[in-house]
């Protein structure tokens, strides 16, 4: 490996790990709020607890619905409402996540796990749903 490629690799690894370190620092940073940023990071930090890492949901005496291939996500307003206000086994997370975080994570689940609802989610939509 030449010096140049080593330097490039080092630079690349820095570039890759810096955001990951920021998310590590965000973990448990507040007892009452999530401080992670970015849809995927927020999903992994909280949503995956019940809806599972691949959005596959889980079934016990009750269930957590799968987000994968979920037609209910077509309208962004539906997940936005549920995240803010909760319903049944879904706790209200309106005080745990801010509007930007909710917009980001809704955009993420609408374009992940086999969902393809590419229309952007705006912070205003979240603000209006509170």
């Amino acid at each position: 490996m030449t010096k140049l490629t080593i330097a490039a690799a080092a630079a690349l690894s820095l570039f890759l790990t810096a955001p990951a370190m920021a998310q590590d620092a965000a973990m448990f940073a507040s007892p009452s709020k999530l401080t992670q940023t970015g849809g995927e990071n927020i999903y992994k930090a909280i949503c995956a607890g019940c809806h599972m890492p691949e959005g596959q949901g889980a079934v016990g005496a009750g269930k957590y619905p799968a987000l994968a291939n979920n037609a209910n996500l077509e309208s962004a307003g539906y997940p936005i409402y549920l995240i803010i206000h909760g319903q049944k086994a879904m706790p209200a997370l309106g005080s745990v996540l801010d509007d930007q975080q909710i917009a980001d994570v809704v955009a993420y689940i609408r374009t992940s796990f086999g969902n393809d609802f590419a229309e952007p989610v705006t912070v205003e939509e979240v603000t209006d749903a509170r």
Binding site: M27, F28, S30, P31, S32, K33, L34, K44, A45, I46, C47, A48, G49, C50, V96
Partner: peptide
Amino acid sequence: YSWGATAYQFNA
């Protein structure tokens, strides 16, 4: 033994 946002994150 924790609650709130801390418990959510441990859950995930």
